[in-house]
Design a binder for these strands. Sequence first.
DNA 1: TTGTAGGCGTTATCAT
DNA 2: ATGATAACGCCTACAA
Lengths: 341, 341
Amino acid sequence: MSSNNPTIKEIALRLNVSVSTVSRALHDHPRIGLKTRERVKELAREMKYVPNAQAIFFKKQKTAVIGVVLPSIKEEFFSQAISGIEAAATQYNYTILFGQSHDDPAIEKRVVDTMKRQRVDGIIISLSKNTHKISFLKEIEMAGIPVVFFDRVPDQADVHKVYCDIYKSTIDMVNWLYSRGFRKIAMINGPSILTASRERLEGYKQALSQKKMKIDMRYFESTDLTKEGTTHAMKKLLSLKNVPTAVISFNDYVHMDATQYAHLQGININKDIAFVSYSNLSITDYTAYPPLLSVEQYPYGQGEQSMETMIRAMKEQHPTHQYYHEEVPATLVIHGTKHVR
Amino acid sequence: MSSNNPTIKEIALRLNVSVSTVSRALHDHPRIGLKTRERVKELAREMKYVPNAQAIFFKKQKTAVIGVVLPSIKEEFFSQAISGIEAAATQYNYTILFGQSHDDPAIEKRVVDTMKRQRVDGIIISLSKNTHKISFLKEIEMAGIPVVFFDRVPDQADVHKVYCDIYKSTIDMVNWLYSRGFRKIAMINGPSILTASRERLEGYKQALSQKKMKIDMRYFESTDLTKEGTTHAMKKLLSLKNVPTAVISFNDYVHMDATQYAHLQGININKDIAFVSYSNLSITDYTAYPPLLSVEQYPYGQGEQSMETMIRAMKEQHPTHQYYHEEVPATLVIHGTKHVR
DNA sequence: TTGTAGGCGTTATCAT
DNA sequence: ATGATAACGCCTACAA
């Protein structure tokens, strides 16, 4: 590493003025001589001067960098979300320091620690599916770095969070199935530690009891979100003497594995059994067995909202007793009639 | 923003020693008193001291941050690539500053400028499909920030780059089709400005002429990679009086749009017309019409290699006359026999 | 209108 | 074995 970038000091030297004059000229300070300002700006351009953000932020004790921690960017949901975060961040002149947890709490902690050392101005995080304790994040917050959770958020109230109301959409979903005559409605849910799973389960129960239907827990399965876990769950559902007529999957990835297995078992997808899901991935249009219906959770919007919430959180005094809970509405999207197959 | 992080200065004050003593103790400097070292470390732990990377890197004139610029993380290829970059970066204790160009050269330049201001130690970039001039990146390099291109790389030799040899895999692909009796082989290529497109075209021509087949340019179409562009290309191919018996798509996304349209036109995919492609997306297993064959370009490996190359580039003296060109091998992956449909 | 000086957190170079 | 101090690039209150 050589060929250094020019500094205001060098500009000052060449122009025989002081560094403060250069600094002020560059910032269009009102009471600076017009021609001095011009001379400075001219030379700065000539020397390709680019201000050293490191130095500025070091001085100001801010970095204009937001850390973003996601489980896995391979999932379309999260890649959309980070685009939303990035778009909003750009508007506020913030930059994104990025890290994936790969659903490993140890990696998650390491990534967050690195970000703290980098002195990011805030951290936006969607928790790993295996994370139980978030004390390390509370500590981060205590140290003056606001934390905003999104989508995979903790249950507790004393955090900033942005999420979709899955409880309500699940009720809508079950109602939709009910209105079309489906009565044996099964669910392949996600890991029970996730708030998202709890909300799906509660919505499911609530909708059924509203319809005076009794809840048969044999229709309720869980998956660890791996292909094997989902296949196992589907297998159990198909082995029931009273095979379900509809299956609600935790998300479109689970849906794809479930339908792939069911198809291999000779099930005619969406004819013998109706399949519905969550996420509304764009890839759904190209898949062999799209869900009849998918809940759109607006990851891009959630990303934008997370950054907006971060902006507000950063203005708060620390420690704070004012926590933001932003709810992004989810909507049902009907598929399956788009392409004749 | 309040509740500041403790500094070595505060530790020094509390222990009645000098800051240099604290600094040395924390770094296990050999000639420091054992019990002093212990006392310092103890208090540091107690006060939850975390070194300020901003200050350290400011002093050392390095940030341990690598800028990564990609067209769009929504494409699985790039989301895999960034995971590879991240994995390698972590090993070398580097962090990732992330930005997307969304295939817009203006945004690309803005992102790169921001990274320069942030004084990243290097930039790894996959060019936007609309970028023609890379002079702004040469300038970045002249300023002492090494630039490593990957996948979407410029043609010229005076750059560091990491890429797959698509020329060779294209020949393999055509040979595979030829050996199975296909003679009317069409191609839906990408934008001609991309090296990747040129290599596909050249491999295509080379393979055909090796087989003494004449090249019929009516079998050669291009797409701007949008759904509309691809549909238009496929439409033209289907309207030929001599409809092709095989179609090579630029990548799996183009393939999906092409097959979706062809299916709607009544074509029996991979029966009436054989479809092959590039990228080997994991989603391929779940799509309605997987390609018979897809070229695996190992995005994760390319990402890792990019970071390795970056490490070497950063050790070079600037300006450099030593440029690294790393070729990651591509391989053919056979599909279509996995699931009976 | 412009200059001077101090300071942000850390490391490195001299001293002691 | 430990302390004092300068330096990194920039900003800003205070002086002139």
